[in-house]
């Protein structure tokens, strides 16, 4: 699919033009020209560098600064915030929310990705069979991914409503008892994971599908000639050849899922209690969740989250680099 867009625009180069500068007057020395070219090159880059410094580096620096000081709303106004070193981090580690938040972050990320990836892979293989309407239906699968998260999250909230939700209604019609999806501490995390899996399937489907497109059909034909059946073809050809793409899909999924905030906040606000609180939620709760914000611990939790995200991020870059080589 991507190749349709990133197609090389065929150049309409007038023919007969000399490629070298043979007929031109002598140019300035190589060194000088190189320096001038570099100046132009950096002129074009300058806006984005300035942008990154002001709108990425500085907020992140501010965040680190917040986490090693004792900031309150007052400190913003009078500019006084005592330096406390790692005290905020120590306080975070000893906080009773830390353990549950860590476990929930791991469960939320791990379970979400396991399901998103498996379902996405199954659907990619299914849609790759190229039946009538397959491309239209595959396009429709993208819809959940493009909707604003607040739309998806509030729709799931109502579907999971204990008394009037359609999901409990279906469970009851099969003779089961309704579940307090969003209000029971046992189910709240499951509920947000289900909604998150639903949102993540399209992304996995699209990337794995583009990976399938890059596998040569000759291999499958050869396998058919050798009498391989469908499951052998999947496990012996598709799965091994998709490994590089799978690794990238999963690592990107990790980076994205660690960041998830909107869905959980809108559906449960991390509750009841802290039963669906992840690091992202905890950080927001501390910083913006109450009328008396605790910016410094919030920033400390945030920095912890950045470190985790960056570990997976660098892993992703390594894998991608190895594939390019």
């Amino acid at each position: 699919m991507s190749s349709t867009i990133i197609e090389r625009p065929e150049a309409a180069v007038p023919d007969g033009r000399p490629a070298t500068n043979a007929g031109l007057p002598p140019r300035p020395s190589l060194k000088k020209r190189f320096r001038a070219d570099q100046l132009t090159a950096w002129g074009f880059i300058a806006p984005v560098v300035a942008y990154l410094v002001i709108f990425y580096a500085y907020p992140l620096f501010k965040n680190v600064d917040l986490s090693v000081r004792d900031y309150t709303v007052r400190s913003f106004i009078d500019g006084n915030a005592p330096f406390v070193g790692f005290a905020n981090f120590t306080a975070i580690f000893q906080n009773p929310t830390f353990g549950p938040a860590l476990v929930h972050t791991l469960l939320f990320t791990g379970i979400s990705i396991a399901f998103q990836f498996t379902i996405g892979m199954a659907l990619a293989v299914f849609f790759f069979q190229n039946f009538r309407l397959s491309s239209t239906l595959r396009a429709l699968f993208l819809v959940p991914w493009l909707l604003p998260l607040i739309v998806s999250a509030s729709t799931w909230s109502w579907m999971m409503n204990s008394d009037s939700g359609v999901i409990n209604s279906v469970i009851q019609s099969f003779g089961g008892t309704g579940i307090n999806w969003l209000t029971s501490p046992h189910w709240a995390l499951v509920a947000v994971i289900i909604a998150n899996i639903w949102i993540g399937i399209p992304f996995n489907l699209v990337i794995l599908y583009s990976g399938l497109q890059n596998i040569s059909t000759d291999i499958y034909e050869a396998a058919s000639l050798d009498g391989a059946n469908a499951s052998q073809k999947f496990w012996r050809i598709t799965f091994p050849l998709l490994k590089p793409v799978s690794a990238i899909t999963i690592l990107l999924g990790l980076v994205y899922t660690l960041k998830v905030f909107d869905i959980i906040w809108i559906m449960t606000k991390g509750g009841p209690g802290d039963s669906s609180t992840t690091f992202a939620i905890w950080s927001y709760q501390l910083g913006f969740g109450s009328t008396l914000p605790d910016f410094s611990p919030a920033a400390a939790v945030g920095n912890l989250l950045i470190v985790i995200a960056l570990i997976f991020g660098f892993l992703y870059l390594r894998v991608q680099k190895r594939q390019d080589a």
Binding site: Y58, L66, A299, I306, L310, G313
Partner: peptide
């Protein structure tokens, strides 16, 4: 740097922006 920038959680960038 641009690749890494995409990996930074939004909640954290928001906090930095808020302070600024």
């Amino acid at each position: 740097v641009l690749l890494v920038a995409q990996m930074i959680p939004q909640v954290i960038v928001a906090m930095g922006f808020y302070a600024i």
